[in-house]
Nucleic acid binder design. Sequence first.
RNA 1: GGGCGAGUAGCUCAAUUGGAUAGAGCACCGGCCUUCUAAGCCGGGGGUUGCAGGUUCAAGCCCUGCCUCGCCUACCA
Length: 681
Amino acid sequence: MYRELQQRLIDQVKEVLKSAWDVDLETIAVEQPPELKLGEFALPVAFELARRLRKAPRIIAGELAEKLSAALPASEGFAAFEVAGAGYINVRLARGAASLKLASGRNPDTTGTAGATEHVLVEHTSINPNKAAHVGHLRNAILGDTLVRILRADGQRVDVQNYIDNTGVQVADVVVGFVHLECKSLVELRGLIAAAEALGPEAREQRFDYLCWDLYARVSQWYAADDAAGDKAEQERRKALRYATLHEIETGGNETAEVADLISTTVLRHHLETMQRLGIVYDFLPRESEILHLKFWELAFELLQSSGVLYYETEGKNKDCWVMTRPDARVTEGETDEDAKVIVRSNGTVTYVGKDIAYHLWKFGLLGRDFGYRRFYRYPAHDCWISCESGEAEHPHFGGATAIYNVIDSRQSDPQANVIQALRGMGHAEAADHYTHFSYEMVALTPRCALELGYQVSEEDQSRPYIEVSGRKGFGVKADDLLDKLTAATRREVDARQPERAEAERQKIAEQIAIGALRYFMLKFTRGSVIAFDFKDALSFEGETGPYVQYAAVRARNIFRKAGTTPEAALAALTANPDSALPDSGLDSQLEQADEIWAIWLRAAKRSLTLAQAIQTAEPAYVARHGFQLAQEFNNFYHRHHILTEEDPQRKAVLLATAAIALGELVAVLGWMGIEAPEAM
RNA sequence: GGGCGAGUAGCUCAAUUGGAUAGAGCACCGGCCUUCUAAGCCGGGGGUUGCAGGUUCAAGCCCUGCCUCGCCUACCA
């Protein structure tokens, strides 16, 4: 609602400027005064006009305020226009009227920026299926899932994809590990997996993706051939084995490929289970194996050639390669562009970026070919599909999106830019414009955390603020370990605070709080900052944390339970009495007198503004902050006003309605972040 | 060398994208549980926003030049 009033104000300011002074301004800055008592909007526009109109800002502000006051009557919700400071115009809302609107449910989520016609495709998680998920993958999945939730809250149609690179070198490395280091046959591997699965989810360390974690690190070490048997020749032999294995996997139809498929599929299932613990689900899992076998690249190659995006290099270091000019390249006429991006190598094989271009043509429905589909994983509410060469006859259609978001860390910004450049070069400007690389910085470990986990940390690394996580080195915090640790910590608290509750209930609450803590932790940082992970911060449940926000919601719920009423009834009671909106009546005067009560209504009114900002800037941290601030305001309100013992019925009605609005807003915002408000804490 | 990101309180981070006195959390110090749950509330100290210029009525934010750190920049995927 705040957003709509802000837009109304901007439009009116433009109109007044035009009619009174014949001034056109592109943008009108609107902000909020530093203190709530000064008003809800502040216009600094008079400063901008001072020179132009040859008048002091305060004079202009006074004249403008008067004209706005006449043009925007109280019936629209604006109560006063006041000149303040050196020339600001502060705008006050009619608090009672605004609150009544909110109480009657006129506070839409949707921003109206995209509309329901947009078909959005969000890709996130995309973990190489060769080892257990770690804390870095959690940031990706939580950011991606939250993006999906806020886009859906905005009314957009969103499909969620998790890309699976099941034929890449990372999977090949684990295949080399099982086949050549562990000397396991396909049959033996099947037995090993069955045995590991039979131990159940409690035997974390024996779980297959955990075994792969260790093996992957061992293989990476083994390639270096700096062990006893190793020399230069041995190193070459091992490297050759690596690429031969990769080649067999890419080609398919052999036992090596079957081993790879078994490994990647098993690990993938564990990733889906891990993410499901956090409430993260997917609609479709496109795999690289199908991009290869269904010849997506061959089609894309023709399109790239005919559009002139790719050209055959005849000279220089990229001789005999098909290359592409980089987006920011400065190419001089007649000279060889040595900096060009190689898409097809001189041996005829295609690079990762090439395959990615083909895949993205499919995403926008520009390739002219589709995957086969079959059901792969069952969620309580829906099926998750996976790509295959020829699948089920009846299936949903994925791809053909009008806008896409790729949640991928900032290290991939270069290849991402290459894909966008290719789309643009092929004449798909529309697609390129709606391609968002949702970029974020990595999660690293603090040196203290690394030492705590028992890793060897060099002197140099110890002096750094953080150390990069590395799957190759087996260096990192596994997602399930972190979740287990968090849940154990929340469970101890819940056991102490809620001893009378049943075991199953306590466990459920503990898990909800653990998820709240983890998801909020990953969302509170803006995308551009590296998260230096530390158990001390992640296991904190006080201050700016998920549990803090959850606790505020639980407190609000307790009020209604003990009062024997519901939030809906409290809001209905408020709106049932139309006189309450009049000045000097209960509602308006109470809100005027108590900024800490009004603060909650105002925060609730900013719902769509927050959503719009979060979407426009692709920054979920705005949502996290909005939730935290609301929780702070609610806790403040909670302490100052004791609702159940309030004797004045009119006053009690306002306080109850305020709690109702706070609760509704807290639950909604937590929902955007994929966090539940527990029954008790 | 080029590209991207970061540099703000002791620590971890914000700052409505150029606006009023740069804000939170943690840590530290001091108060508040016979109350709708203290996973909470109130108060306190703590800042030359990496450095130097510039643009502007107004700069943490924009421009120029430096400094420090991280990532990317391969016919790896």
